[in-house]
Simulated scan of single mutants.
Amino acid sequence: MLLGLLLALLVQRSKRFNRLAQVVLLWPAMVAPVVVSLIWLLILSPNIGVLNKLLDTFMLPTQDWLGMEVGAIVAIVIVDVWHWTPVAFLMLYTALCAVDEEAVEAARCDGANEWQVIRYVKIPMLMPAILGTIFIRAVMGVKAFDEMYLLTAGGPNNATTLVSLHIRDVFFDQLNYGYGSAFSVLIVLLMSLIIALVLTVRTLRHSRFFMREVQE
């Protein structure tokens, strides 16, 4: 979210490289998760990985990046952030382009610097898009499977066994259909609760904004 917002703000300010930046930033999201996993496996592999080859070239100790508990979860997070930050960028950049420029110019005329414009004008106007993006990323996080399964298969010591992999193990390895079904229903209910919270917060913000406009 933070990277997507930062990139959206930077790209909007860049008039000369605007189109090029959009293409470069969006292409990771267009690559299939399986392909992304294979690319990063070639980078992080302890034997043939590009990263270890680079470390060996500079006479630095190589690491089993996917064989350590901390290293594996960090690698999964990095891969997921690299792959799906473009989604957050696209949603926030689209919302940022729709921000009322008159309000921005009015704030600048009143003496606000660039940080104050972002903090008190742009971000409040982007809040519906931010909440929507958080919700979408939460759903995508629960559904994440390909990267974890292909890179680490949930290991080492179940360090990267998150929701989707756990459900898969319960159903197909343990054949515990009762627990797996109950766990899946619980996840659906939790995600429904998150949707309800997001919609409630968004409705309250719109109501407060409407009441403020009426009072003014």
Rank of each mutant, 00 (worst) to 15 (best):
L175A: 14
P156A: 08
L9T: 05
E101R: 14
N158K: 12
V121F: 04
D169R: 14
K15H: 02
K143P: 06
I48P: 07
V31F: 06
F209V: 08
L2M: 15
G4I: 01
F17N: 11
R16M: 04
L5N: 00
L5T: 05
Q215H: 10
E147I: 08
F135P: 00
R108Q: 14
R119I: 11
V104H: 03
S14D: 15
M191R: 05
I39H: 02
N157P: 03
L9D: 05
L41C: 10
H166S: 09
D173R: 12
L26Y: 10
V142D: 09
P46R: 07
R13W: 09
M1S: 11
T160D: 07
D169F: 13
H83F: 09
Q174S: 14
Q215T: 12
G67W: 05
R19G: 07
P61A: 02
N18D: 11
V142M: 14
M68V: 11
A138R: 09
Y120E: 07
V201S: 04
D146S: 14
N113D: 09
G4A: 06
V24K: 07
G67V: 02
R208M: 08
I43D: 00
A103P: 02
D64N: 10
T203D: 09
N47Q: 15
I123Q: 00
H166E: 04
L2G: 13
Q174M: 13
P124Y: 05
I187A: 11
W84T: 03
A75K: 00
N47D: 15
V104A: 06
D80H: 10
L38E: 07
I73M: 08
V139S: 09
G71V: 03
E101T: 07
V99S: 02
M91F: 05
L96K: 01
L44S: 07
C109E: 11
I136K: 09
F145R: 13
R205G: 04
L26S: 15
L92A: 06
G49N: 01
L26K: 04
F89N: 00
A196Y: 12
L5I: 04
V214P: 03
I123L: 05
A106G: 03
A153N: 15
S37V: 00
F210A: 15
K15E: 06
R16D: 06
G141V: 10
S45A: 14
G155F: 04
Q12S: 08
S37R: 00
L131E: 02
L175I: 12
L96G: 01
G180R: 05
L126N: 00
L10E: 02
W115D: 10
Q116A: 14
A153G: 12
A138K: 08
L189W: 03
E213F: 02
V117Y: 01
V99G: 02
A182K: 13
L96F: 07
V117H: 01
M91P: 01
V99T: 05
M30P: 06
L189D: 01
L60Y: 08
L66H: 03
V198Q: 10
I48M: 15
L25V: 11
A112G: 01
W65R: 02
G111H: 02
